[in-house]
């Protein structure tokens, strides 16, 4: 379990990184923390000619707080968020979720952009950021574009990256003071990949209510208007509609009844958390 020989560069700016990944004669991999790529290299599941380490790019280590959003550079680590070095505009949602990602050693080096682009369906960031309505910004030879995170994730380990493109930042909307959120992860032990994730946001002032079934076999199942899951009552959890939730995950491609059961339960618990928050 040792990687094949590869070349390694650590550019100082995004333009430099883009020049390296534009080279289509060599197999190039971007490393943004290496917490997933490292093991894949060791197991020779990926055998690149060149590793472009983007953690030396100052722009990607920046956080910009605006009136209604915060923009995280791709190389902000999970620990940056967990420890509060990056500002929180989500009423504690990101900080709480960060604390539950894998193990502290992984959080010290793993980055938000790397985790999203790796596109493991059970990754925490994908589910919570989809619930919060986050977008990702990509830069490439054609310029920049921004898309909702749930569209960026195309399937298991498959992100919507065009040739020569890289993720540079994640934009998260600022929650209003009345917003409530919930996040429930089902796994058997600390640090294990999740078997089911439920993420939920209700922000009446912004007229947002979103729910996410995460840790699916593929992309997260996002319910953009999640009020219909709450039945008649406006109070979350008072009337969580398990049958509708079950239909939604089934329509999302989940055939196994036990998988559906734990995903529905995880979301219901997330909704309940939001009610209790």
């Amino acid at each position: 379990m040792k990687p094949v020989n590869f070349d390694y560069v650590r550019p100082r700016d995004v333009e430099g990184a883009l020049r390296f990944i534009a080279n289509d004669e060599r197999a190039v991999k971007i490393m943004a923390g290496g917490q997933s790529l490292g093991p894949m290299l060791n197991m020779r599941l990926v055998q690149p000619d060149l590793i472009v380490d983007i953690t030396g790019i100052e722009e990607l280590r920046q956080v910009e707080e605006k009136n209604d959003t915060v923009v995280f550079g791709a190389c902000i680590t999970h620990a940056d968020i967990e420890d509060g070095r990056a500002p929180d505009v989500t009423r504690g949602a990101l900080r709480t979720v960060a604390r539950g990602i894998a193990y502290r050693a992984v959080r010290n080096r793993g980055t938000i952009g790397g985790s999203i682009t790796h596109a493991d369906p059970s990754a925490d960031w994908i589910s919570i950021l989809a619930a919060l309505g986050a977008t990702v910004t990509l830069r490439g030879p054609e310029g920049s574009r921004s898309i909702p995170i749930e569209n960026y994730i195309m399937g298991a380990l498959e992100a919507d990256l065009r040739p020569g493109e890289m993720l540079v930042s994640v934009t998260v909307p600022r929650l209003s003071a009345a917003a409530r959120w919930g996040y429930y992860k089902s796994c058997r032990k600390t640090g294990e990949f999740a078997h089911a994730i439920g993420a939920f946001l209700i922000d009446p002032e912004r007229d947002v209510c979103r729910a996410v079934f995460g840790a699916t076999e593929s992309r997260p199942i996002v319910v953009a208007d999640a009020r219909r899951l709450l039945g008649d009552s406006s109070a979350p959890s008072a009337g969580f509609d398990s049958r509708l939730a079950d239909e939604l995950v089934e329509a999302g491609g989940m055939a196994d009844p036990i998988d559906r059961q734990i995903h529905v339960a995880a979301l219901r618990r997330a909704v309940e958390q939001a009610g209790a928050a």
């Binding site: 049958r243 036990i258 059961q261 529905v264 219901r268």
Partner: peptide
């Protein structure tokens, strides 16, 4: 005794018919 084995056992329990999500709830 994994979560799946627990849930399969409960779903296959002889004393209950309906194993749908509402019944579980």
């Amino acid at each position: 005794m994994t979560p799946r084995r627990v849930l399969e056992a409960i779903r296959n329990a002889p004393v209950r018919e309906d194993r749908g999500p509402e019944a579980m709830e």
